[in-house]
């Protein structure tokens, strides 16, 4: 597939790798943004990867829109010939599914939901043909996810699960967005999971909560002292279902500056991944704890 290029006014070049979401489209967007960054084209001020597209902000006083377009198109040709391999990191994120805080919130906004008689997880399990909520949670936390975009608001990761299309979970957003979502809620909308970095409005279904802060403008959280935003596009995330006890312990550890997220640098090879998804994912997950 060839990229579609379009200008967003006189300061943005918008590049759509595919209309549809897929791991291939995301991978192309990510590797192209890496290649554009490495190329050091003058006049580029920001490069923002999204799920199946990306955006370049540029200064047209430094490089003309036409010249920028030609240089980026030349990179596309080179990127298509390159090996589909990237260096990234895999991170284990603890999630307390069916927690009391998102439950309290979802009950407050029941009239905005497709199925006011069920919880968000019960609804999601049913429409994805899972017999129980536990089975659905097992699917959500069973295979890893690519952080396909960081944004909307500060530090919020959108994640796409690393499974083939028939196994993708899909859940519509709330009929009308809520005016409140607890901070660190693990949400779901369309084919994307997310973690709300701050408290606020939201339309994604709420599945649980993580005890691990991912945005800290005061930079007091020990692992956010170097930079206030935790996630980067291209990170690989593995959710780990935890109970109340472990959740509380992790919150306390974060407070005390004792908590460090379990993570490792890894290489991701799209071709190898496609040869055997489950085996490849198992290998990636094994790397988290150095097995």
């Amino acid at each position: 597939m060839k990229n579609r290029y379009s200008f967003g006014g006189d300061e943005h070049l918008f590049v759509e790798c595919d209309e549809s979401m897929s791991l291939e489209a995301f991978f192309k967007s990510l590797s192209m943004t890496k290649a554009v960054k490495a190329s050091g084209i003058r006049g580029i001020t920001e490069i923002c990867p999204a799920n199946a597209s990306f955006q370049i902000k540029f200064d047209p006083d430094v490089i003309s829109p036409g010249d920028l377009l030609r240089e980026v198109q030349a990179i596309e040709d080179a990127a298509e010939r390159a090996e589909p391999v990237i260096g990234t990191r895999i991170i284990e994120i603890p999630v307390f599914y069916q927690d009391p805080w998102t439950h309290e919130t979802l009950m407050r906004f029941r009239e905005r939901h497709q199925d006011p008689k069920a919880t968000d997880l019960e609804y999601a399990a049913r429409i994805n043909n899972y017999a129980t909520v536990e089975d659905f949670i097992a699917a959500h936390s069973g295979a890893p996810w690519f952080v396909s975009m960081v944004g909307f608001v500060a530090g919020l990761p959108f994640m796409y699960q690393m499974v083939d299309r028939p196994r993708q979970l899909q859940v519509p957003k709330y009929l009308r967005p809520r005016t409140d979502t607890p901070k660190l809620t693990v949400g779901y909308g369309g084919c994307f999971s997310c973690i709300y970095s701050v408290r606020g409005a939201g339309g994604y279904q709420m599945f649980g909560i993580t005890p691990m802060p991912i945005f800290d403008p005061e930079q007091k959280v020990s692992y956010l002292r170097d930079f206030m935003v935790f996630f980067r596009p291209g990170d690989i995330v593995k959710f780990k279902s935890v109970g109340r006890e472990e959740y509380d312990q992790t919150v306390a550890d974060v407070e005390a500056g004792r908590f460090a997220p379990a993570m490792r640098d890894v290489t991701f090879d799209l071709t190898e991944f496609q040869k055997g998804i489950d085996a490849y994912n198992a290998k990636l997950e094994g790397a988290i704890h150095g097995r």
Binding site: E16, S20, M21, F192
Partner: peptide
Amino acid sequence: PFGAGSDPSNIVDSCYP
């Protein structure tokens, strides 16, 4: 398209200039 949502004004989430 897959992942875009059902409304015709929906797209697969992208960057906003």
